[in-house]
Design a protein around this nucleic acid. Sequence first.
DNA 1: CTATATGCTTACGTAAACGTAAGAGGCGTA
DNA 2: TACGCCTCTTACGTTTACGTAAGCATATAG
Lengths: 154, 154
Amino acid sequence: MMTLMTAAAAANTNDSAEASQHEDFIRIGEMAKRHEVTLRTLRFYEDKGLLNPRREGTTRLYTRRDNARLKLILLGRKVGFSLREVKQMIDLYDPAGSNAKQLRLTLEKSEKQLGRLERQRQSLDEAIRELSGLIDVVRGMMAERQGQAVSASA
Amino acid sequence: MMTLMTAAAAANTNDSAEASQHEDFIRIGEMAKRHEVTLRTLRFYEDKGLLNPRREGTTRLYTRRDNARLKLILLGRKVGFSLREVKQMIDLYDPAGSNAKQLRLTLEKSEKQLGRLERQRQSLDEAIRELSGLIDVVRGMMAERQGQAVSASA
DNA sequence: CTATATGCTTACGTAAACGTAAGAGGCGTA
DNA sequence: TACGCCTCTTACGTTTACGTAAGCATATAG
């Protein structure tokens, strides 16, 4: 029976992720599943100041805003920003303001990062070409040796 | 005057890199310049068993074969192999043999690596697309805020 | 003889983003 | 009461390829 259940315990009680989709707060396990990250990652991000979930006792409770933040963080990581950079951008967010600074910084960093990614793609393409070439060479050598072996045994 | 000069000392005496291009042995400084790596890198590769230059006393002397080896190592690194993998492949080299094993291993590793590189390129392209999208969004927001500011001040 | 360049060995430091115990609650169920 | 599941904090470990002193020897140039 649910007597003096805390919100956290209540969430824990729910059978599936589905069941708690209307909850305002989710705990770290749910959060991790939803975003496909580990608990360690969430705690790590918090330790680095990227997340700030509420607490109920010691238990972390994440809201929709935390969800949105995490999505941004993961997007940042996906496009190659370091957590430090992501933090710099996020920290500039001001719910009551134009966020001009934040937007400028984000734009600037994004353009630089885009440049880096494009340069990366160039060297990656170059590497692919060179590796393909190497494969051809190796195949050629193998065919050659094979030919010798065959002619020698014939 | 050149009295009892060692080979190393002789090399050291030469005015430019040009002058020693016909030398059979070059020292670490020359080697580093030719391949655009640091001395530390060459010593590190040796420590890891990737290079085995001769010695004259304590001084490392590199030959054409070492040059060729280093080129291979740097090519390997360029295409994304770890030094460990490069070593595995190089270690299989037998000057008196068909090197069938080496060729097979190299081919196998190369094909896997090629796959990895291509997957990398896909996620890189995806990242580029997402980042471009982000830039557009940010630009849009800035324009919006700017518009508000302008209309507010008008 | 000294200053400068080059080389040697040994070995701790670095970066990024977590992984991985270790030890300890809290809560509900069989 | 015991068991199981979730969560917490603290903190050392991991990976790769070198960077960076520190302290010393060698060697030619001035």
